[in-house]
């Protein structure tokens, strides 16, 4: 039997189809739409919050989305240990909802940034990153205006100590330099996981790294890991 994975759709979600296809490309998975106005998780075993501009994001990215009916269920699902992946706007929503610490501020360059980006996999201790090797370099696309990860120093220290920094922005040699940092994120943090390891939020798009034809196939292991964890 196939594993049902929910893809949440807010009205301004615009990477929903990309994520739906990425999930669907994993053998044994069945992507399912979850509409923001509903409360029914339709029996899904894993959930992805896709990128976009959930409610226009004029106030703050993800600020309004977290109050939608479906998010109450997503939060409860995550707290029960269900695998939840937040990509880009999904990461912003996860921080607004308090499922992940910190916040995503406007990029330090002020402007939106879309480019190919090298990342270092910092932890393999999540279902989403278990198919990578520790320290592996992968290439995804970043595309966001508010991806500047900030948190208090103590929070950052704790994330590092507990191995909860999942991805870091690096250059092609693996060095976490300022030049390699697309948005000013503290300590070049691109993605983090929660204490339990079942929630992952990241700004770069593994959903856009699913095919060599489009430039990179490096994102596929993330979705494979998600489906396996949900099975």
């Amino acid at each position: 039997m196939s594993v049902r994975i929910g893809v949440v759709r807010f009205p301004g979600t615009n990477c929903d189809r990309d994520v739906f296809d990425a999930v669907g490309s994993v053998e044994g998975s069945e992507p399912v739409w979850l509409w923001h106005k509903e409360r029914d998780l339709e029996g899904v075993r894993g959930i992805v919050l896709a990128g976009g501009f959930s409610f226009g994001d004029y106030l703050r990215a993800g600020a309004i989305a977290r109050f939608s009916p479906i998010m109450e269920e997503v939060v409860a699902f995550a707290r029960r240990g269900g695998p939840v992946l937040g990509i880009c706007n999904g990461f912003q929503i996860l921080t607004e909802a308090g499922l992940l610490p910190g916040a995503l501020m406007r990029n330090d360059r002020i402007t939106f940034v879309c480019r190919d980006q090298w990342l270092k996999v910092e932890t393999t201790d999540t279902p989403f990153t278990r198919h990578y090797s520790a320290g592996q370099l992968v290439r995804y696309t970043v595309a966001h205006g508010e991806g500047n990860y900030v948190a208090e120093e103590e929070v950052l220290d704790r994330l590092e100590e507990e191995g909860r920094v999942a991805f870091r922005y690096v250059d092609e040699t693996g060095a976490a330099t300022d030049a390699a940092n697309p948005n000013g994120s503290l300590r070049n943090i691109a993605g983090i996981r929660d204490e339990g390891g079942n929630i992952l939020g990241l700004m770069p798009h593994p959903d856009r790294a699913m095919s060599e034809l489009l430039g990179s196939g490096d994102g596929a292991p993330v979705f494979r890991g998600l489906v396996e964890a949900a099975a």
Binding site: L59, A63, I64, F67, P101, G102, A103, A151
Partner: peptide, 9 residues
Amino acid sequence: RRLLANPVI
């Protein structure tokens, strides 16, 4: 507290 501001930042 809930919407207009994000107390984290």
